[in-house]
Write a protein that binds this DNA or RNA. Sequence first.
RNA 1: GGCCCCAUGGUCAAGCGGUCUAAGACACCGCCCUUUCACGGCGGUAACCCGGGUUCGAAUCCCGGUGGGGUCACCA
Length: 498
Amino acid sequence: MKHIKVRFAPSPTGPLHIGGARSALFNWLFARRYGGKFLVRIEDTDLERSSRESEENILASLTWLGLDWDEGIGVGGSGGPYRQTERLDLYHKYARRLLEQGQAYYCYCTEEELAAEREALLSAGEMVRYLGRCRKLRREDGLQLENEGRRAVLRFQVPDERVVIVADQVRGQVKFECSGMGDFIILKSDDVPTYNFAVVVDDHLMGITHVLRAEEHLSNTPRQILLYEALGWEIPVFAHISLILGKDRSKMSKRHGAAAIEQYQALGYLPEALVNFMALLGWSPGGEEEVFTLDQLQEQFSLDRLAKNPAVFDLDKLNWLNGYYIRQSSLDRVTSLAIPFLQRAGYLSSEATPEEQEWARLLVTAVREYLSNMSEITNHAALFFHVPDYNDPEARAVLEQEQVAPVLGAIKDRLVKTFDQKVLDEQGVKDFLKKMPKDLGVGGKKIYLPLRAALTGRTKGPELYHLIPVLGLNRAVVRLESALGFIFAQHSGSDLDV
RNA sequence: GGCCCCAUGGUCAAGCGGUCUAAGACACCGCCCUUUCACGGCGGUAACCCGGGUUCGAAUCCCGGUGGGGUCACCA
C-alpha cells in the first residue's frame, strides 16, 4: 500500500468519548500497521460549543491512552494550521472557486422559511432537504437583501438527477440519490465553513488517504464526495466503523453511564485495558487470543476484520480486562495508582509518607485480586480502619462456637510474644500461622476462621498472612480483645436468659 | 415519516457454500485448588430473526418481511 495517512479530527465540545477514542485508536493502529502517518486536527467550527479546555482534555486523553500523532495540533507539520478556525482563508478560497464555477450560490432564506419548508416535507413523507429557492436569485437582488440587513449563507448546488456511490471498505457500495440531498450549506452566515465543507478541504490539503470514522457519518459521505468532485480532488478511501451502543441498544452516550475516557481514568481503569477493550468492539483478531497490548494490536490490525454490525458496550468485559491488567501490573505501579484513591478517602495523609507508602504496598498485595478498577480499593481498605462490630451473622456464628475464646486468647498472647521485637511480614505471619495447630493442640478449623472473624468481623477476605501485616500488631491485638469481649458478652447474655 | 446501515448464545464475536451435531472471550452455573473469599484450573447451560428462493448442499448467496440502529441543522 502507498503512503497511508489517516487522521482523527475531534470537535472540542466536550471530553473524549469512548466512540471517538475508538475511532482514534483504529486510525492510529491502521497508520502504525502499514507504516503510515497519523494526524490530529481540531474541528472547532462550532464557535458556540468549542473550547480550548475541551481541546486540551481530548488531547490529554489520547496521550493517556498511549496514542501519539505524527502531525497536527501540538506537533506541527506541513499541512497546518491544524485548528479549523485558523484556516478560514483556505475555506474561503475554495468556496470562491465553487461560486465562480457556478456550483455554489448565496441563499437568503430565513429561519422561518426553512422551518416551514421542513415541516411541509416532513408531513408529506419526503426527505427533509432544501429545495433550492435561492438557486436562481440574481446577484443584484441578493445585494438588495443584504442592504436590508439579511445575511447570506453559501450553498453547494447538488445535481438534480444523480446517484452518488460511496465505495466503503466495510459496507461495500452504498448508493445515495442526489434528489434527496438538497443544496447544503458550506459557509454559514458568519463565513465559517460547515463540517461537510471543512473536512473535505482539510482532508485533501492534508493529504489524507483513508477516512476511518463512525458509521453516523455515512450519510454525510455522498455530500463530501460531491465536493471532492466539484473541486477536482481525489477521493479518499472511506471505512465507516459500526457504532458502539449502550445497554438499551441506542448510540452510546452520557446517559448510559460513563462515556468519557477521563471518567474511566478517574475511576482507576488502566489505559491498556481500555485500549484492549475498545479494539475488540467492532474489530476482531483472527485467532482466539483476546488480550493484546497496543504493540500486539498494531501488528494485527486490518480493515477487513472490521465488523459491520454495531457493538453493545459491555462493562463486565471491561471490568474483567481491567482486573486482569491490575493483576499483571507491577506492585509498584498498582500501589502508586492506589495512593490517590486512599488519600481522597482519608486513609492516607496528603503527603503519603514512606511509611504510608509501604503500608499501601501491603494493602495492595492483599486486595489487588479483588479489584476491577482502582477506585474499589477504598472499599477494601475500609476493613482495616473500622473495628469490627460482629454484626455479620456468619462471623457471629463462628465466634459463638465452643472453645473459640481460649484459642483467640492464646493466639493473641503468642502474636504479641512472637512479633514484639520482630517485623510482622508476610513470611513471618505465614510461619506463625502454620505452627498454630500444633502449638495449641487444636485443628485448623478452630483457628483460622475464628481468627479471621475476630480480626475483620467477616468470614471472607484476603489471606490472613496478607491481612495481618496490613493491620499491624497493635490493631490486631485490639481486635482480638474486642472479639473476646464480644464473646464474653454473648455468653453472659445467654446465661441471664436461662 | 423519507433515506441509509445492520441482524450467530444475555454481551463481544469466529464463520466468508460442504470439515457447523456452529470456535473463543465476558457474564452465569458446577467441580477442583484454597481450612474463607478472590485468583487460577477444569467442565456446563446458552445462538444462526422469520418466510420464500438459488443449489446436490445455505449460518454463509438472492428476494421479501420483521426487528434494531443511524441520519435528515447556519452541530460535528
